[in-house]
Design a binder for these strands. Structure first.
Length: 480
RNA sequence: GGCUGCGUAGCAAAACGGUUAUGCAGUGGCCUGCAAAGCCAUCUACGGCGGUUCGACUCCGCCCGCAGCCUCCA
């Protein structure tokens, strides 16, 4: 039974889809005026893992993740660069897709863009005005009248009286209430703009998500996700807009992931303490970043540091090392379920743990990936033991490990490739050179020339290459 | 000030009202020419003070500390 923490109720709830067997999930994606940082990577990886797991449970999932490609920051950045805003957003959308691909994030089913949803946005604002929930302000902008929406604050646990508006922000005099927010913003000269009943302008920040989500998934859908910082005001405002316009419940379940931190502080653009995904990829393999993200629960804070990334790398190596030398390829066509029969039979006889059940139990508990990973490590230990003696079990364990790991989007590379590859493009030591040195060392070993053999091994170690002799006389190697 | 959430061993990170998390690091052993990897064993815990309970890291209260939101942010 899948349980998910719902921000709306602040409880874990049993997941019940609106329509049997189907799930609609909308996640707030990027505003594309810069490269993705590790915080964005976390959202992508977390909800990619959620999506993979829903599919594993045989739900017919529609996963929507939007792109906000028009807003103040985009305009500002485009002006700074002296380039057209379209060109700017296209560049960063492309960059985002590259980062996703690297991190093993499967594309969402639908990726709507704000600029392609203007008609829907305008239509929604019109309805909101008709419903007396929105008004045209003194400056021509259209605002949402927050006090007219009775449940305002339900998601973030705030009430209007507590919100002490104006304390930290200049009160916009065009608004009736300082907490009212913009739905449609009039264009200044030379700003990108679209025609509307209120004149040339552009959508406010929150309305595009209301329009895109309801258009793609219907007025009422199952799951809406995003970073914790979107809880208020963004998601609160989305509820006000969507429910105000449709009169229906907007979303059943809200999921929010925790922040990536640096030195106990939120990684954010405004603080300037962020690392972009492409920066980090220069130093670490993408799968290590993915593992690092999954090594803590999605709602917990995730502290970013080299030490942590290095540990993630070591841990991942342990898993790959366990798979090393096992011919998983010949089993690749068997699906996980047909393997269950074998495993469950052994399980019943008390011979084996049912790792798949343990894994699913962890994931069913609000996507507890740290525990799911710990099951993979238990499995790896079992596999390592089996490799010594039991051929049949070796295959079963290796296959189970790889299949379960695929639900997390890890461990799908060839172990040899993973262990031998380097992120450094200008790696001085080629694989061929290493193989040659190993051959020389093997010759030295034959004549029991331990001094030379050890020197070669030490030299290679100095260059980040670890040699491992096997009892059969073979020598394998990997990079540190 | 209002509202969230967190505080676990050397580090990271989970679960659970009574029983081994897991990974890295440490220690001892097996294996190895020696290593590495692997296996076995093992040492370090639950911020503080009270309460509930036969029993609390786990539930409740208070205190201390940290982070986040209340403004753009994933």
């Amino acid at each position: 039974m899948l349980k998910i923490y719902n921000t709306l109720t602040r409880k874990k709830e049993e997941f019940k889809p609106r329509v049997e067997g189907k799930v609609g999930m909308y996640v707030c994606g990027m505003t594309v005026y810069d490269y993705c940082h590790v915080g964005h990577a976390r959202v992508m990886v977390v909800f990619d893992t959620v999506a993979r797991y829903f599919r594993h449970l045989d739900y017919d999932l529609t996963y929507v993740r939007n792109i906000t490609d028009i807003d103040d920051k985009i305009i500002q950045r485009a002006n700074e660069n002296g380039e057209d805003f379209n060109r700017l957003t296209e560049r960063f959308i492309e960059a985002m897709h590259q980062d996703e691909l690297a991190l093993g994030v499967l594309p969402p089913d639908i990726e709507p863009k704000a600029t392609q949803s203007i008609a829907d946005i305008v239509r929604m604002i019109e309805v909101l005005i008709k419903n007396s929930l929105a008004y045209v302000g003194g400056n021509g902008d259209v605002f949402y009248a927050v006090s007219k929406f009775k449940n305002y604050g339900q998601l973030s646990g705030k009430n209007l009286d507590d919100l002490q508006a104006g304390e930290r922000v200049d009160v916009d005099l065009a608004k009736r209430n300082p907490l009212d927010f913009v739905l449609w913003k009039m264009a200044k000269p030379d700003e990108p703009s679209w025609q509307s009943p209120w004149g040339l302008g552009r959508p406010g920040w929150h309305i595009e998500c209301s329009a895109m989500s309801t258009c793609c998934l219907g007025n009422h859908f199952d799951i809406h996700g995003g970073g914790m910082d979107l809880q208020f005001p963004h998601h609160e405002n989305e509820i006000a807009q969507s429910e105000g316009a449709t009169g229906e419940t907007f979303v059943n379940l809200w999921m929010h992931n925790g922040f990536v931190r640096i030195n106990e502080e939120k990684m954010s653009k405004s603080l300037g303490n962020f690392f972009t995904v492409r920066e980090v990829l220069k130093q670490y393999k993408p799968e290590i970043i993915r593992f690092f993200i999954l090594s803590s629960h999605y709602r917990s804070p995730l502290n970013y540091s080299d030490e942590q990334l290095n540990e993630a790398g070591t841990a991942l190596k342990r898993l790959y090392n366990a798979l090393r030398g096992v011919n998983v390829a010949e089993l690749i066509d068997i699906d996980l379920n047909s393997l269950d029969a074998i495993v469950e039979d052994r399980f019943r006889q008390g011979e084996a743990r049912c790792y798949k059940l343990d894994f699913e139990k962890a994931m069913d508990d609000d996507f507890n990936t740290p525990v799911a990973l710990s099951v993979l490590f238990d499995l790896a230990r079992e596999l390592n033991k089996a490799k010594e003696t039991d051929h049949e079990s070796t295959k079963v364990f290796a296959f189970t490990l790889k299949k379960l790991a695929s639900l997390l989007g890890i461990l799908q590379e060839d172990p040899e490739d993973f262990l031998k590859s380097s992120v450094l493009e200008d790696e001085a030591l080629t694989n061929e050179t290493i193989e040659q040195s190993i051959q020389t060392r093997l010759d030295a070993k034959k004549t029991k020339n331990w001094v030379l053999a050890d020197k070669i091994r030490d030299d290679l170690k100095g260059q980040g290459v670890i040699l491992e002799d096997s009892p059969s006389g073979q020598t394998t190697w990997r990079r540190e």
